[in-house]
């Protein structure tokens, strides 16, 4: 079947089997490999991207379910050659080691801040608790999200 969706602002149409998972569609059919895949049971969150602005574990959706919708992946965070503050925060605070969980963590972190620009440590921990990281022990991921909260991009500073 044919599936059409907007990915990081561009309309993409691809052939796929009806049962194709969104994570496989994005990685294999579209070729955006920043979104990862790490489990069979929707526990790890390495596959998190946004569908219509909401974080989604892309292994829990068929590509066909995203037909006509707007998808944002880690590749869509950088704008005009400028890293998003969430990306910069992960670098500044050593929020990543192997980097495998990082795209998913950053997508959730960005979403947390978009909805709550000054989250508490508890709110951040709760917000990323559906995702696993085996390397960092989470402390520096929390710090990275806090760093991004403290350093909003020029255009996102709200009155």
């Amino acid at each position: 079947m044919q599936v059409t969706m907007t990915i990081n602002g561009e309309s993409v149409t691809k052939e796929c089997e009806p049962r194709t998972l969104l994570v496989h569609f994005i990685r294999d059919n579209v070729g955006l490999r920043g979104t990862h895949w790490g489990c069979d049971t929707s526990n790890c969150g390495t596959c998190v991207l946004w569908v219509d602005g909401e974080p989604v574990k892309s292994c829990t959706m068929f590509a066909a379910m995203a037909d006509g919708r707007e998808v944002t992946t880690v590749e869509g965070l950088e704008k005009n050659g400028q890293l998003d503050p969430i990306q910069q925060g992960f670098i500044e605070c050593h929020g990543l080691q192997c980097g495998f969980c990082t795209p998913g963590m950053m997508m959730t972190g960005r979403w947390i801040l978009d909805n709550n620009p000054h989250p508490s440590e508890e709110e951040i921990r709760e917000g990323i608790s559906g995702q696993l990281c085996r390397c960092t022990g989470y402390k520096n991921i929390v710090s990275a999200i806090q760093w991004a909260a403290d350093h909003p991009a020029e255009n996102e500073v709200k009155a």
Binding site: R33, L83, I91, E92, H94, L96, G99, F100, T102
Partner: peptide, 19 residues
Amino acid sequence: MKRVEDQRFVRGQGNYVDD
């Protein structure tokens, strides 16, 4: 020192075996 390798990882440009 900030890590050199982070530049590719935060952009989703790591190159893992499944990639």
